[in-house]
C-alpha cells in the first residue's frame, strides 16, 4: 500500500507539503490536509511535534511549541490520519516527520504498526542518520512503511551508500543549516542527484529553504520533487485557524510552477 502510493506521487514532478500536526489545533490540521491535497500537493508530511526539534529553524520550532501547548500527541495524530483517510477522501501519500525519541518511547513495532494501519506511508526522522537506520528498519519493513533516508551537501562519499539502501524517496537537504526559508540556495545539487541516480531509481525530493515558485521550479528541474515546509507553516502562524485560503493560494502557485 505505502510503497505503491509513494510511487504514484512521483509520476510527475512532486510538490510535497509539510505542516506541523496540531498547529494551531487538530481540527485545523485536518482541514489543512484537505486544502493541501486539493491545491495540488502530491504528498503531505505531517510533523509530530517534539519538545526539542534540533533540525528545525525558528518557524517550525515555534509551530511545534504551539502544537504541544494545544495538547497534540502522537496518538491523536494517528487518529487524525485514520480519520482523514476514512472520511475526508485523502488519497495522497502521507508521511510522518518526527524525532526518534517519541517513536522509541512508543516502541518501534507498535508505532509503525499503528501508523501503517492509520494510513501513513512513510516516516522521516531527522535525528536518525543512515548509520543508525538499522534499529528501525526491521519494524518499518514489517509494517510496510518506508523509512526515508536523508542526504545532505555534506554527505559526500556516504551519498552512494545511502542511496543504495534508500526506500520510498530520498530527502535531499538543499543546503547547510536547519529548516527555514532562505532567500537563496547556493548548493549545486546536480552532482549530488547524479551520485544518487547512479545507485538507485528511488525518486529524489529536495527540501530546506524553498519558498518561491522560481526556487521550486529550479530545484524540481534537477530532481523529482520539492518539499516546502516553513513557508506553509509561516502562513499558519500568521492566519491561525483561518489559513485555508492563504495555504490554497500559496500551494496552488508552487505546485502549479512544477507543471
Amino acid at each position: 500500500m505505502g510503497t505503491e502510493r509513494l510511487r504514484q506521487a512521483f509520476t510527475n514532478k512532486a510538490f510535497i507539503a509539510f505542516i506541523t500536526g496540531g498547529d494551531p489545533s487538530l481540527e485545523a490540521t485536518r482541514r489543512y490536509i484537505g486544502v493541501l491535497q486539493r491545491a495540488g500537493a502530491a504528498l503531505i508530511e505531517i510533523g509530530i511535534p517534539f519538545s526539542d526539534p534540533i533540525a528545525e529553524g525558528e518557524v517550525i520550532q515555534t509551530a511545534s511549541a504551539r502544537a504541544l501547548a494545544a495538547g497534540t500527541t502522537p496518538t491523536r495524530l494517528l487518529e487524525l490520519v485514520e480519520t482523514v483517510r476514512r472520511e475526508d477522501g485523502i488519497t495522497v501519500p502521507l508521511a510522518f516527520m518526527t524525532y526518534l525519541n517519541p517513536v522509541f518511547h512508543a516502541g518501534y513495532d507498535a508505532f509503525l504498526g499503528a501508523a501503517a494501519r492509520a494510513g501513513v506511508d512513510a516516516l522521516i526522522i531527522p535525528d536518525l542518520p543512515y548509520e543508525e537506520h538499522g534499529e528501525l528498519r526491521g519494524a518499518a519493513t514489517r509494517a510496510g512503511v518506508a523509512l526515508i533516508s536523508m542526504v545532505a551537501p555534506t554527505s559526500l562519499a556516504r551519498t552512494r551508500q545511502i542511496a543504495r539502501d534508500a526506500q520510498g524517496f530520498i530527502y535531499l537537504v538543499s543546503s547547510l543549516g536547519v529548516t527555514g526559508v532562505r532567500s537563496e540556495i547556493t548548493t549545486d545539487i546536480a552532482p549530488i542527484v547524479a551520485a544518487i541516480r547512479a545507485e538507485t531509481e528511488v525518486p529524489v525530493a529536495v527540501g530546506f529553504g524553498i519558498s518561491t515558485p522560481a526556487q521550486a521550479r529550479a530545484m524540481a528541474a534537477q530532481a523529482d520533487g520539492v518539499i516546502v515546509g516553513s513557508a506553509i507553516v509561516r502562513l499558519i502562524a500568521e492566519h491561525g485557524e483561518a489559513a485555508d485560503d492563504a495555504i490554497a493560494a500559496f500551494v496552488g502557485e508552487l505546485a502549479g510552477a512544477l507543471r
Binding site: P126, D127, L128, Y130, E132, V151, T154, G177
Partner: peptide
Amino acid sequence: QYIPETLMN
C-alpha cells in the same frame, strides 16, 4: 550517533 545527516561527516 543520532544526529542530522548534515553533521554525520
